[in-house]
Structures are given as C-alpha cells and as structure tokens.
Simulated scan of single mutants.
Amino acid sequence: MESFALLEGTDEIEDVSERCLVGKILAPKNLNKQAVANIIHSAWKTRASVRISPWNENVYLFQFDDLEDLRRVLEDGPWSVMWSLLVLQPLKSGMVTSELEFRWCPFWVQVHGLPIAKLTRGHGETIGRRLGRLVRVEAHSEGLLLQRNFLRIRVEIDITKPLLQGFILHHREEGEVLGGAGIIVLYKYEKLSEFCYDCGRIGHDHNECKFVSRDEGINSGYGPHMRTATARSLGSSFAPTQRPVGMVKMCTSQF
C-alpha cells in the first residue's frame, strides 16, 4: 500500500471538534433518522441550535453552536432514544471514525442498604471505583452524608459488561474474623434504559441475548428493580484527582 500525505492548509476549514459530540444509540435495529432527530431536539431543549448528522448504524454527529449547551447535555446524561441508550463522547481533533469506541457511559448510581455509619464520601469513592471510572461522589462534607439514606455516585460504566447488582457487606472490627450472612447492598441506576434481564447488558433484551441461555437468565437477579428515579441534586459534589477503573461482579466486601 502506498504512502500518502495531505498537505495542511489546502482545503481545511475551521476546526469545530470542540463543539461536537459523536454518539451511538444502542438499539438492536437501525432507527428512523428523522424520528431520532425530533426526539433529541425535544429532550435536550438547547438554547442555541444543534445540527444532527446521521452517519451509519445508529451513529450520529452533534454540532453545537453553544459550548454551554454541549456541557449541559453531557452533565445531564445518560440519554435514551426510544428506550435505547445513547452513548456520547466528545469529538477529538484528528479522530478516525473507525476508531470510535462507544464503551463507557456515565450514570448516577444510588447505593442502598449501607449502615448509617458507612454513608461517607470515602466509602462512596471506594464503591465508585468498584463500579467503574469514578467521576465524583455527591457530598457536602467530609463526615457522614446524612442528607439521604443512600450514597449517590457519578461513575462511568463499561457497558460492554453486565451491570453490577450490588455486594454483600461484612463488617469486621480489629481482630475479628469475617462471618455471618452479611448485609446486602444494592445498586440502583438513574436514567437506566432498556437492558437484558438475562445477562444484565445494555443494548438488547432477553429475546436477542447471545450471552446466556433462557434457563440461566431466569435466576439472574436482574430486573426493573435496578432502575430508580433521578434524585434531586444536592448541589455539591467531590471530584477525585484520579479515576482508576475496576469492574467486579456481585462480591463480598468489607469496609
């Protein structure tokens, strides 16, 4: 294959990548492009205009006239179109379309069932890193977070893997040995689109699942109970300096 270079400045126009998002709708079939555009315009309610360009296989380019609109769309996500998840990512200068990977999506995850003494920012960070890429823990203070009876964590989730359902918490004092049944702690996902109740993955339902058999899926533990309404924002949160990644299944944990 021959080597070839394109000279800079011959036909380029202004780089608008910073005002663009590229997204993929995780639907089992190609959706009507005009219907998608209508739904998105209605849902986003941007101050300035947004140009929507359909590419292929439910992939779209979104060009914003206002950067604040773009930031708000990312912050208020995830978004669903016809019950299917829309995975968004910034368009980077020099990006090649064949290299696009729609793998990570931010969710607000509520952590229910923790003892009151465990409702702290530090425990929220620990749990968030187990869920995926920790973005922030909603918190007003360093101590107990008693504004709610659950933790609320913003985390980027690897949507190619099954959703995590929660964990069993064993409390151990110094010198004690783990034992007993433990406490069941459950994850509930805000704005969770349709997903497979058999395998726990987003992007298909049980009728099209290729990961587990129908018999295996009967006792999977997945279901609509993993969805929850969007909690009112407390207006303050903590963003960690590092964002390590870690994905685990239902597990036994101690704090």
Rank of each mutant, 00 (worst) to 15 (best):
residue 59 V to K: 02
residue 88 L to P: 09
residue 54 P to G: 04
residue 107 F to D: 02
residue 89 Q to D: 05
residue 116 I to S: 10
residue 113 G to L: 02
residue 43 A to G: 02
residue 54 P to W: 15
residue 101 E to V: 11
residue 73 V to A: 12
residue 95 M to G: 07
residue 118 K to Q: 15
residue 124 G to F: 01
residue 109 V to P: 04
residue 126 T to C: 10
residue 85 L to K: 13
residue 116 I to W: 08
residue 83 W to T: 10
residue 59 V to A: 02
residue 115 P to F: 03
residue 50 V to T: 02
residue 81 V to N: 10
residue 41 H to G: 06
residue 65 D to I: 01
residue 104 W to G: 01
residue 57 E to W: 06
residue 38 N to A: 14
residue 84 S to K: 05
residue 36 V to N: 01
residue 79 W to E: 05
residue 91 L to I: 09
residue 56 N to V: 15
residue 66 D to Q: 04
residue 123 H to A: 09
residue 114 L to S: 07
residue 68 E to R: 11
residue 51 R to S: 14
residue 112 H to S: 00
residue 91 L to R: 12
residue 49 S to P: 02
residue 66 D to W: 09
residue 47 R to N: 13
residue 96 V to N: 10
residue 73 V to R: 11
residue 84 S to F: 13
residue 89 Q to I: 07
residue 100 L to E: 04
residue 77 G to H: 09
residue 69 D to S: 07
residue 128 G to N: 02
residue 123 H to E: 13
residue 50 V to E: 00
residue 42 S to G: 01
residue 60 Y to H: 10
residue 54 P to V: 01
residue 117 A to S: 09
residue 94 G to K: 11
residue 58 N to Y: 01
residue 55 W to Q: 10
residue 57 E to P: 00
residue 112 H to V: 06
residue 79 W to P: 01
residue 35 A to R: 15
residue 78 P to A: 07
residue 36 V to D: 02
residue 53 S to F: 14
residue 94 G to V: 06
residue 57 E to Q: 08
residue 120 T to F: 00
residue 129 R to L: 00
residue 68 E to C: 08
residue 103 R to G: 04
residue 46 T to E: 00
residue 49 S to C: 06
residue 55 W to K: 15
residue 66 D to S: 08
residue 94 G to A: 10
residue 64 F to E: 00
residue 126 T to E: 10
residue 47 R to H: 10
residue 66 D to L: 07
residue 115 P to M: 07
